[in-house]
Design a protein around this nucleic acid. Structure first.
Lengths: 208, 208
DNA sequence: GCCTGAACGGAATCTCGTGTCAGTTTCGGA
DNA sequence: TCCGAAACTGACACGAGATTCCGTTCAGGC
């Protein structure tokens, strides 16, 4: 999981550790009080360090949100791409299982810690244009991924041949988004939501 | 549509007019530059008035966002409830038509003016807790409304008897949300998205 | 134990936007 | 035309925070 060259030195390690702690503390503050309502001093105080120290690790306030978001995005794309691949399945039943697995992974990320959806969906887009674009990029990435799954299914014939792959992908992601948002108020409904979502995808809503 | 007692006086009318112009200007600024990035001075300048005048009409900066959001929420709930009622339909075909009609109305609101979704979904939730709750309330309201439609359909038997009404309603609203968001980048896909959404609801994604 | 450079802390500085207020202008009525 | 009330204006007071900076502390090497 780790990368590139090793910094070795013990002190160096301490530094990296504090850096990480600052990111975590910033995440906590931003998610709880909101980005604009948190001051650098709040983040520093939470760690028991002087706020001047913060600037030895990060350029400025705006700089650190990027790092916080980096981490969350990495966590999500990780879950999305991990042991799942569009071409790993070849039947509708398998596909259904795979979507359940992905849904569960996302549910864990969004549902277990409401701070994640709160920061990503409620705080981040309002920070500035650049951050809003980042979030939209994330949506686009997810849509592309979902579309790939659907395309694969259409090619193998277990999904409708006339499926509008791109727009259906966006619709499906919208449902997931809706699940993430409603988990902010009713975290316990996660599983039921996820199931309803799959029923809708596979069976539609009409009476048989 | 208008309400209560009449202020009559000509000057009084001027006042109401300016009040409205301030709300509109604030909406423009908040949607374009973002809430936190706009100052009262920006809003005032846009109208060519001194920023002191602003405070003759509104308590403070926070006060006016509420009014801006009020208006948008009213527009949306209006479209949602207007000439549509859950019990106005009695067959699947009629229901499908009705959802197309509602979808079109929402599409007009969100799609024709990207500032609406931008303010409501990207800016507002990050303003403070209270505003975030307001947005969640709006979601809940919409979900309740959708659930009412679904319930009605289940009772009349044109929708699946084992439909998880509440969670399916949230899923459907999520799709609409997804449409609104993707309209920020690709406004032209509105119609196709809306159609894909309905196909998904009625036909599912599986091959026949 | 002493020296040196890096890390730290937090007082001081600087910027900026909100909200106030006293002077000025506008406007309707007499 | 003149008067008084109401509306408007923009300079200013004020506070909140972000960022800087320098005196102090700490850790490791000699």
């Amino acid at each position: 999981m780790t990368s590139s060259a090793e910094p070795v030195s013990r002190a160096e390690r301490k530094k990296q550790e504090l850096r990480r702690e600052i990111i975590d503390a910033a995440f906590d503050c931003f998610a709880e009080r909101g980005y604009h309502a948190t001051g650098i001093a709040d983040v520093a105080t939470r760690l028991g360090i002087g706020h001047g120290t913060f600037y030895r690790y990060f350029q400025n306030k705006r700089d650190i949100v990027d790092h916080v978001v980096d981490e969350l995005v990495a966590r999500i794309t990780g879950a999305l791409t991990a042991e799942n691949a569009p071409d790993a399945v070849s039947t509708l039943a398998e596909y259904r299982e795979q979507s359940a697995r992905i849904g569960e992974a996302l549910g864990r990320i969004f549902g277990e810690d409401p701070r994640v959806p709160r920061l990503l969906l409620f705080e981040a887009p309002g920070i500035d244009r650049a951050m809003a674009e980042r979030i939209l990029d994330l949506f686009d990435l997810a849509a592309a991924l979902t579309a790939a799954y659907l395309s694969h299914g259409v090619e193998l014939g277990y999904l409708r041949a006339d499926l509008d792959v791109d727009n259906t992908a966006r619709a499906i992601n919208g449902m997931i988004l809706g699940t993430a948002i409603s988990s902010l108020r009713t975290p316990e409904s996660q599983a039921a939501q996820s199931e309803a979502l799959r029923r809708l995808m596979y069976d539609g809503i009409a009476a048989t």
